[in-house]
Each structure stands twice: as structure tokens, then as C-alpha cells.
Design a binder for these strands. Structure first.
Lengths: 345, 345
DNA sequence: ACTTTTATGGCAACCGCTTGCACGCTACGG
DNA sequence: CCGTAGCGTGCAAGCGGTTGCCATAAAAGT
């Protein structure tokens, strides 16, 4: 039904292989012949069938992009950038959503495997071991995770966490809390390490709370625990969690930033729109998307040789309205227990 | 390199056709044989190659989903739902972003054509004519647009606009403005028609402003014009535009809702998070995504026969904080007596 | 007991395209 | 004038599956 290479061959009066070559190796065919073939092709509206081509070449010119939750505002800019860049390089991309489910993630990778040249895994929830194993069969690049043998693009969330801690301590906060992300999140772990170290260096206490769902819900649910540890400054796993936390605190009569300073991570629209506008660690998501595709394409071309490349993108703290200086007297000498009963809203 | 149907055949001691059949027509093969084949298959880790299969069957089991801008918060929930539902039905989906460019949209469709069984077009920017022509070669379903011969899922934005107008007039507003969307937007046109009619019926003036870019920028830029037409209530093309407008108004010393009532459309996170929380027309985006895939698969199965189906999804006004009763004296006697506005909730 | 069904699985020809190989032709040095 | 490079093209064998057709054998009918 569709116009194939044979139709073109017939129309141009040449053999199919010649048509094939004028598309995949133009220099191998005589200029005149090429003209003739091209003319016939456009005249018939011929478009090579990628799938068929893939069968013999082993190159599908398709990529997979697997994220935990498309609706999480962190991902769309990354997806958009990755998709646009891939397209520029002649690739189409399958976007899939795992709903934070490692099982689904694995299944997705396996069914996608034959149809793509490689896949980008963003903040995968799979174990390192599983990823390494899958990595033997297909080029991967992981975003926000480090996996042996695989290219990775990392956002320096550790430095972001450090900046956040410094910001809070410089505002006089001495009791900090860190709201971690979901179990198995590399990002969360990096934040924990960096924040813990920096807090210790600054002589501040830091309570780690989690794991939490990386959603508003996760933040809201963590509110009591945050209040319980009597922190005055909180770093949340991401903007959504921060926003949820702020709501949860408000419901308990604690205003942000007056009664509590909150810093988010990601710098999504959500945070920019929230009131108070969120102080947050900005992530270079678009750059990450582009870089990931770039590394993936490199890995695809190298296939076998080619060492895994690592790119680390910088993050930076954006100070807005959800953080403020600690209230005088809020930081009692560590040891004097104090119960600031929060009235239920 | 990968394990093929022949490896399985050899391992199970049967012919390849038998292996093929145990996967695509299990009932045609004896239970014992099937067992043996299945065992060999799982043992070898065999996975059928969709691309190869597509070559003979003509079914790729892939879908295309084309949107104008992935990063626009209206789309992710739709994409997510569509993707999840497609996956449930055994399909993978290519997601592509046209950056609001009709040219790119067309190109995308054509390169995708051979690799998918059908395409969902969300708020396409192409002309009806182009879409119809493309529709001859490939099943399509369009979202938020009506194209002859193609299945469509519509969100009843007209009714949404009517609800918005009623809400505003019931608050006492008599001079309304409507911020349209980009040129060629079906949604925008539906809103215009419905809002104009309803405003006339309610004896209110309505100024249409546009086209506007469907972004915050579009709203901000339109602020002077809104002020210029001395409207007291505005309906924006979408939440983003509404938010941009609110900012633009604030920059000119007009507060919302005190000095101006603004209602958005879409009910995205952005609107929920904004302060004031946006009064907005909620769009059933997730349902739209699912329905679109459903209709598309129907069209794919029918291929040729099967009439185009139309599904209209309801919208509903969500009243939040960006609208309030008009200020006394704000509505000069435009000829008609004025009704006392309902007090803001 | 012998023919007719019916179930099962093998055979081989594709699907649209790529690619190693070989053939025919021109051009060129000796 | 012939041997021999090349170049440009045709030939045909796949890539991994599917599927119409046919052979075989067992089940059923008479």
C-alpha cells in the first residue's frame, strides 16, 4: 500500500539496491542516477521505512526515555529538551512513565530493548545491580545516578544541599531537618551525605526524615515529624515536597518563612508560582536532557569500546521567599528542651 | 547477537513457524508443544522483535503522541494518562513536541508514519486541510479540535467559557475581556463563540483580545490592553496566561481579585499553586489522554470501515480566589440597571 | 478395514531494506 | 593492444517474523 523502494526503482528504471544506496550511501552512486532516483522518490512521495531498515542495520534511530512520573514538574523540561535534541540528530524518542515502580521500569526496558538504540534512565528506581545487568545488552545513560560502566549525567545536588545548609545556617538556623526522597533515590542519598557533613561542619544539628514520597503528599505527611524534631529550617527532597510541607505546616498553624524556613530542590514552575515563592536549589534539567542524549548517542556509536563518560552539571541556590532569619530565642541551648506546642489549625 | 525465534526453535526441537505461532496464535499449537516452546523461550530469554513483526503484519504496536509543548503544564497529565493506557493495551508511544510549529508538526507526522499504527494530535496547529490529507494515510485522533472524518476527543470548553462568564456576571461584572490563544487554536475559537453569546445574553460587554502566546508571557503582554478596555473581569486562554496577566496587572498596580477578576482555563498545578489561587475551568486532561488512545485503537482496528467517533468530555468551573464581586461603582450605568453582585465566598 | 476429517506442524515465500560480491564498462599505463 | 584498475550497478542472501498451503498422522465415520 505504501510506496516502497521497489516502486521507486521501477519508476527510475534502476535496481532497488541503487535506490537504497542513493539514500544510505549517496557517494556510491553516480550523480545523474542519483538525480533520477531522487526525482522519482519525491515524485512518488517515498519515505524510507525505518523499521525495515533497522532490521538489517541494527540501528533503529529510536531512543527510549524512562522517567518515574511525567506529571512531576521536574521532568517535562528534561523530556522536552531531550526530545528536541534527539530529533535534531535524527532520532525519535519513546517516552515512558514507570509510576515509580521498579518492576514496571524493568519490564519497560525489556520490551523497548529491540526497538531502540539506547535508553536514557532518569532517576531510575532500579537497583544498581539490575541496571548493570541490563547495561550489557543495551546502551544506557543514567541521569542522577552513578552506575558502574554506564555514562551518566549528574546534577551536583550535593553542592546544592551544601549551599542550602549554608544559607540556612547563615540565617541563624541551628536545628535543621532534611526530608529525603523515595527509597533507593541516589539524589536523596547524595543530599543526605553532603548536608550532614556541612551541618556538622557548621555546628548545626540535622535530622533526616524519610523516605518520603516525592510528591506534595509526601511533604504534607512529613509535617508532624518536622515539627516533632523542632527544626527551624528544612531542606526538602524537591519543590513538590517543600510545597506540601508548607501546606502541612500551615494546617498546623506554622507560617513559612516566619515560623519555619523551607528550601526546595529543582526550581520547577511549581516553586516559582507558590506563595511564598520557594527558595530552592535550581537544577539544570534542560541541559541534563540534552547532555543525556548526547552521551547516549556517543555510547551507541562506540558500542563496545568507548569508555563511559560522566558529566556533572552545576546547581545553584535560588533564594526567594520561603526562608528567613531564625526568630530570636528560637535556638535554645541544645539541651534545654522546649515544647512549642503548635496549635492545630 | 540477540536471541531469535530460530534459537528457540532449535532449542525446542520444532520449526520456527511453530514458535511464531505459540506467540501469535497459541490455540493453533498443541499444549505440550507450546509448553516446550515456552520453556525454551523463557530459558533463553527470548523476546519477540516488534519491528520485525511489524514488517509482515503491518502492526507496529507503537503510537505517536504529538503535542505543542511538553513543558506546558496542561500536557503532562494527558501524556501520562495516554502513555499508561497505551501500555496497558500493549502499545509504546513516541512523544513529540512541535514547539508550536506547524511545519515541524507535519514533518514529525511524516517521519513517524511508518513506525506507528496511529497518531494522537493534541491541539494541532496544522490547518484542517493538512490534517485531513494526512488522515488518508494514517489513523489519527485529534484532541480539542474537530476534523472531518477523524475521531476526536473534545473538552467542552464552550460550556466552560459559559460557566466562567456566568460566574463573572453573577459577581456583578459587566465589562468582560477574553484573552484568546494562539492563531488557529480551535479551543480559543470555541471559547470566543460561547463566551460572546453568553455575555450578550447576560447583557454584558465582552472584548476579545488576541491572538496571544499561550504562555505567561502572553498574559503579561496583554495586561495593558486589558486595562485599556476597562474590563473588570477577564477570562484567559489558559492558566499560564492568567498567571502572566495577574503578574502584569500587579506590575501596573492592579491587584487580583480586588481590582480585577481573572479566570483561567485548564486547572493545572500552576493555577492551584498560584497566589491568589486561580479560579479556573477544569479540563479533564487525563481522561482525554485515555479516551484519545482508546479511540485511536478503535480507528486502527477498524481501518477503513468504522466511522469516526466523537467524545466530548465535560469541563467544570473551579472557583478559588482570583475572582471577586465587582467593586461598587466600577460598572458605570452602561444603559442597563445593575444587579447587586454576589459577595465573594 | 478403509476413507474422511481434523489437528498439528513443516515448508517457503514474503515484509522493506541493506550489503557483500561479482560483473561490465571505461580509462589508462606500459 | 592488452592487462588491469576502478567505478557504478545488479544480484541475491539475508535481518526476524508471519502465514497460506501442504503433508502427515491420528481420530472418526461408515
Amino acid at each position: 500500500m505504501a510506496v516502497t523502494i521497489r516502486d521507486v526503482a521501477q519508476a527510475a528504471g534502476v535496481h532497488v539496491s541503487t535506490v537504497s544506496r542513493t539514500f544510505s550511501a549517496p557517494h556510491m552512486v553516480n550523480a545523474d542516477t542519483r538525480e533520477r532516483v531522487l526525482a522519482a522518490a519525491t515524485q512518488l512521495g517515498y519515505r524510507p521505512n525505518q523499521a525495515a531498515r533497522a532490521l538489517t542495520t541494527g540501528r533503529t534511530h529510536n531512543l527510549g526515555l524512562i522517567v518515574a512520573d511525567i506529571a512531576n514538574p521536574f521532568f517535562p523540561p528534561l523530556i522536552k529538551a531531550a526530545q528536541a535534541y534527539a530529533r535534531e540528530r535524527g532520532y525519535h524518542v519513546f517516552v515512558a512513565d514507570t509510576d515509580e515502580d521498579p518492576q514496571e521500569e524493568q519490564e519497560l526496558i525489556q520490551t523497548l530493548a529491540k526497538q531502540v538504540d539506547g535508553v536514557v534512565l532518569v532517576s531510575p528506581r532500579l537497583t544498581n545491580h539490575s541496571i548493570e545487568r541490563l547495561g550489557m545488552e543495551l546502551p544506557f545513560v543514567v541521569v542522577n545516578r552513578r552506575v558502574k560502566g554506564l555514562s551518566a549525567v549528574l546534577m551536583d545536588v550535593g553542592s546544592g544541599a551544601v549551599q542550602a545548609v549554608r544559607h540556612l545556617t547563615s540565617l541563624g538556623h541551628r536545628r535543621l531537618a532534611l526530608l529525603g526522597g523515595p527509597r533507593g533515590s541516589w539524589t536523596s542519598e547524595q543530599m543526605r551525605k553532603a548536608a550532614t557533613a556541612e551541618a556538622a561542619a557548621a555546628g548545626a544539628e540535622l535530622t533526616v526524615i524519610g523516605p518520603n514520597s516525592p510528591t506534595e503528599r509526601g511533604g504534607t505527611d512529613a509535617a508532624p515529624e518536622v515539627l516533632g524534631c523542632r527544626a527551624t529550617g528544612v531542606i526538602a527532597y524537591n519543590d513538590l515536597v517543600a510545597i506540601g510541607l508548607i501546606e502541612g505546616l500551615a494546617a498546623r498553624g506554622v507560617e513559612v518563612p516566619a515560623g519555619m524556613s523551607v528550601v526546595g530542590v529543582d526550581d520547577t514552575v511549581a516553586g516559582r508560582l507558590n506563595r511564598p515563592k520557594l527558595t530552592t536549589v535550581a537544577m539544570p534539567t534542560a541541559a541534563a536532557g540534552r547532555t543525556a542524549v548526547d552521551l547516549l548517542l556517543q555510547a551507541v556509536d562506540a558500542r563496545g569500546n568507548g569508555a563511559a563518560a560522566q558529566t556533572t552539571l552545576e546547581t545553584s541556590l535560588v533564594v526567594r521567599e520561603s526562608t528567613a532569619a531564625v526568630r530570636p530565642g528560637e535556638n535554645p541551648p541544645a539541651g534545654a528542651p522546649e515544647i512549642a506546642g503548635a496549635p492545630a489549625g
